[in-house]
């Protein structure tokens, strides 16, 4: 038991969690009144989920050996299309809950289409993921802009706003969703047969194919699932902003990659733990909220984020070099 605890602490995720605690206490110490305030904790709880879900979506694609540059535009395209339907039903005097349900179903359906597109091009045609999703990113952005003409879709029913701002037993709904998704993606990636195939494909797709794994289909399905996750993040964002626009969340693209890599996911695939990504997301969120409280300009927060990414990778490189 004791050795088990020790093992947990020296594992990558253990170290990350210690860093999280350190950052959290540092922020609390530096600004006890405000960082630990109910308001701040709650606002973190509202922001964390959308970023976290996008990071998990990015991560499962990275584990296959790919990358999804169209991630945030998948989220915004689906929120725009679904949002439009929702706003129209609402404007026509339809039932609010019905409108919300229809909107969400369409958002997820639209994201699935995006996922099918990416998955087909990557898995079945064999285009390098970076290029395929780069093209898709431009494409989805273009379609979104064509629909919104550069503006934002709004006029959502009141019920929709509840998703992003409501609570159940005092816990914000986005947080509940996030926890469910963490458990879901953990089961999917680390415990299911498909997840185990994904790790093996990420390491060596040829061996997986030669072992009777349906490599193309699994890669295809992974992009599909990742897109559905993006749509869920999209729902949260649209609800929080009370509108839908193609540029929402575009800064999350970098951060999602950063969180995956910080969390120990190998950028060339095959390795990575859900826990690592989730803790990395929490670290980044605490840092950005903390810096925000200190009145640091939000642009400088980006600087710090990029800096952390580079510093962590540099440390990775140096420790690897030493261990060799």
């Amino acid at each position: 038991m004791k050795s088990g605890v020790k093992k947990l602490i020296v594992s990558k995720e253990g170290i990350l969690f210690c860093i999280f605690l350190f950052v959290f206490f540092l922020m609390s110490l530096l600004s006890p009144g405000r960082f630990l305030s109910w308001y701040n904790l709650q606002s973190m709880a509202y922001q964390l989920p959308e970023f976290g879900i996008l990071a998990l979506s990015m991560m499962i694609v990275i584990v296959t050996g790919g990358i999804n540059l169209s991630l945030t535009y998948t989220a915004t395209l689906s929120m725009i299309v679904g949002g439009m339907v929702m706003a129209n039903i609402s404007a026509a005097g339809g039932n609010g809950i019905l409108a919300v349900l229809a909107g969400i179903v369409i958002m997820i359906g639209m994201a699935s289409l995006c996922g099918v597109f990416n998955g087909f091009v990557v898995a079945y045609i064999g285009v390098t993921p970076m290029l395929a999703t780069l093209g898709a990113m431009t494409l989805f952005e273009g379609i979104s802009l064509n629909i919104t003409k550069g503006g934002a879709i709004s006029g959502f029913p009141f019920e929709f706003l509840m998703i992003g701002s409501g609570t159940v037993l005092g816990i914000p709904i986005p947080m509940i969703l996030f926890i469910l998704i963490i458990v879901g993606t953990w089961l999917f990636l680390e415990r299911s047969k498909m997840g185990m195939s994904i790790y093996m494909i990420g390491c060596n797709p040829k061996v997986a194919l030669y072992s009777g794994v349906r490599v193309k289909r699994i890669i295809f399905q992974t992009y599909l699932i990742a897109s559905v996750l993006a749509a869920i993040a999209g729902v949260l964002m649209a609800s929080r902003y009370n509108s839908a626009k193609e540029s929402y969340g575009s800064s999350y693209l970098l951060q999602a990659v950063a969180a995956s890599v910080l969390g120990g996911t190998n950028i060339s695939g095959g390795e990575g733990k859900i826990a690592g990504t989730v803790i990395a997301v929490m670290i980044l969120q605490v840092i950005s909220s903390g810096l925000n409280i200190f009145g640091l300009n939000r642009y400088l927060t980006n600087v710090v984020m990029g800096g952390i990414l580079i510093v962590v990778l540099t440390i990775n490189f140096l420790t690897e070099k030493r261990s060799k």
């Binding site: 990358i67 970076m130 970098l254 990659v257 950063a258 890599v261 950028i267 060339s268 300009n297 642009y299 400088l300 927060t301 980006n302 600087v303 710090v304 984020m305 990029g306 800096g307 990414l309 580079i310 990778l313 540099t314 490189f317």
Partner: peptide, 26 residues
């Protein structure tokens, strides 16, 4: 970053992009 620290180009340049753009806007 890419040649000496062996950071994958996509990650390294995402990092510098964030830093540089952040500084510019700040």
């Amino acid at each position: 970053l890419i040649a000496k620290l062996k950071i994958p180009p996509i990650v390294a340049t995402l990092g510098t992009m964030s830093v540089i753009l952040g500084l510019v806007l700040y």
